[in-house]
């Protein structure tokens, strides 16, 4: 049976924490492996943190929209913010030698590494992610992906 929920909340860390907890509980209740819970928790946390930090620039009066759907095979997530968006092609690759010591900029790379599919709709304030157990990200199969 598919579990679905949507939220429209203030962009606060507290609200985001509650959403992440509820989604992870739904994933566990569908019997998914720990590696799946870890991956989705990480990706959702990063998407929400980016929305608050970069999209809303910390303005807690701005609203986040989150949709989640969980069944036995897939976890689908959508995170929307009220920011101006960004061009994902302009985000520097954090794994390049010259960027390794930079303290930020790894969120999108982690989302891509830990989810089966990630795309960002123009203008860049809506991110759509899927974890498909039939098409898991390379790291979930024990491989070492690069981003």
């Amino acid at each position: 049976m598919k579990w679905q929920r949507s939220w429209h909340v203030s962009g606060t860390h507290q609200a985001c924490g509650n959403i992440v907890a509820e989604v992870c509980q739904a994933i566990e209740s569908h019997g998914h492996a720990e590696v799946v819970v870890f991956a989705v928790r990480l990706a959702l946390e990063e998407a929400l943190a980016n929305a608050i930090r970069h999209g809303h620039q910390g303005d807690e009066s701005m609203q986040l929209g989150v949709e989640a759907a969980v069944d036995a095979e897939c976890i689908d997530l959508i995170v929307c913010d009220e920011g101006r968006g960004f061009d994902p092609h302009c985000v520097p690759d954090p794994t390049r030698d010259e960027n390794l010591m930079i303290a930020s900029g790894r969120g999108l790379a982690l989302m891509r590494a830990f989810m089966s599919d990630v795309h960002i709709d123009p203008p860049g304030n809506r991110i759509v992610m899927r974890y498909d157990i039939h098409s898991p990200p390379p790291q979930a199969e024990g491989g070492h992906t690069t981003v």
């Binding site: 870890f38 943190a49 790894r106």
Partner: peptide
Amino acid sequence: VAHLSSSALGMLITLNS
């Protein structure tokens, strides 16, 4: 520690420096 975020990675890089 069971989970950490990219912000935690940034904190460790700063601490390492």
